[in-house]
């Protein structure tokens, strides 16, 4: 909304506030729509967790709010929201504008908190998901979900392809992926379903154009020379010091392919790091590294029990063979990588 400003600039603050009050709460139809969306968002944020996404409640503990405006007037609703009641928390800091929008929303017939993000149901779910995706996910995963800054191509993701109605995508979205710096998001079940519907629609779209498909195909990663790769594996790369084509890498190309194989080859994530701790008493405890910052070291022992100590109070050694992959980064040529990739693909 652009309030024309030439006429306003000479007026005093009090008048400005009066004008602002006149413009904002009681404006046009478009303004009413905005208020409705604000109310729906306020409901989704504060109320839906107990009273349900569609105000259906969850008896016996949480009453439905479907006809709440027949039981309480606006003032009673406002007081209840501000002060709480029984197990219902108080929201004393809710700004007046948000409170008014919420009460108006509770009067409305639109039962969907998800309406804040677009239409519900049927073919429109993916559209609602698109808007949520653009706001929250597109920066990393790209606007078409086919990859962008940092985030992987979701139209090729095995997890996303296996997802049904958000069952797998939802788990990742709600928990995040701390190891890959993906944050967690608190979306409602409806929101998760709509995001999943959008991703599935994008997968379908991408699969319809196999020839000109963007992103990394298995066929793109076939430029290396397997014999040179084998020589690098056994020689300059030093790979054979830790790995064996008949041992840990036997059949590796049957388990992984394409970009996934190349990423694992260059730096395998989630490998286990061993730590040996010597306590002040001389007692030794070993296990898998579970946490380490400057101040605390934590491990899981063979029973799965977690132990931690201040780093200043114990002596410890960390055995992290995966660090050899980091040391190689500055030594590889691109040809070395493509050759190694070709060699690993022979290990079926």
């Amino acid at each position: 909304m652009k309030v024309t400003v030439g006429m306003i600039k000479k007026l005093c603050t009090v008048t400005l506030m009066a004008i602002a009050a006149w413009f904002f709460p009681m404006g046009s139809g478009a303004q009413t729509q905005t208020n409705h969306e604000e109310g729906a968002q306020a409901y989704a944020k504060h109320c839906s967790i107990c009273h349900g996404d569609h105000r259906e409640g969850n008896l016996p503990g949480f009453p439905p709010l479907l006809d709440i405006s027949r039981q309480l007037n606006d003032q009673q609703m406002a007081t209840l929201i501000h002060t709480g009641k029984g197990r219902m928390p108080a929201f004393p800091k809710m700004p007046q504008e948000e409170l008014m929008a919420l009460i108006r929303f509770l009067h409305s017939d639109d039962l969907s908190a998800g309406a804040a993000h677009g239409e519900e149901g049927g073919a429109n779910v993916a559209d609602a998901g698109r808007r949520l995706f653009q706001r929250n996910c597109a920066f990393c995963h790209g606007r078409d979900a086919a990859g962008g800054e940092t985030g992987p191509d979701l139209t090729r993701s095995k997890l996303a392809l296996a997802d049904v109605n958000g069952d797998k995508i939802g788990e990742v979205v709600r928990n995040g992926r701390p190891d890959k710096k993906m944050p967690a998001f608190n979306f409602s079940s409806d929101e998760i379903r709509s995001i999943a519907a959008f991703i599935h629609a994008q997968q379908k779209k991408a699969a319809e154009h196999p020839g000109g498909r963007r992103g990394v195909d298995v066929a793109d990663l076939q430029t290396g020379n397997a014999a040179d790769g084998k020589a690098y594996f056994n020689g300059a790369g030093g790979c054979a010091k830790c790995h064996s084509p008949t041992g840990d890498l036997a059949g590796i190309a049957s388990r992984f392919e394409g970009l996934q194989l190349e990423e694992r080859m260059l730096y395998p994530r989630n490998t286990k790091t061993k730590v040996n701790v010597t306590l002040p008493s001389g007692e030794k405890i070993s296990g898998v590294l579970a946490y380490r910052d400057e101040f605390t070291i934590g491990l899981r022992d063979s029973d799965g029990t977690y132990h931690s100590w201040p780093t200043s109070r114990v002596r410890f050694t960390v055995d992290s063979p995966v660090d050899a992959h980091v040391e190689l980064f500055s030594k590889y040529t691109d040809k070395d990588i493509h050759d190694l990739m070709a060699y690993l693909q022979t290990l079926r």
Partner: peptide
């Protein structure tokens, strides 16, 4: 940090126009 960068004709010449993956 280290990463791998990809681009091919199918990625086009609009917006991102490629793909990259952080390794470590």
């Amino acid at each position: 940090s280290w990463s791998i960068y990809f681009a091919k004709p199918a990625d086009g010449n609009y917006g991102w126009a490629g793909a990259d993956y952080g390794l470590w």
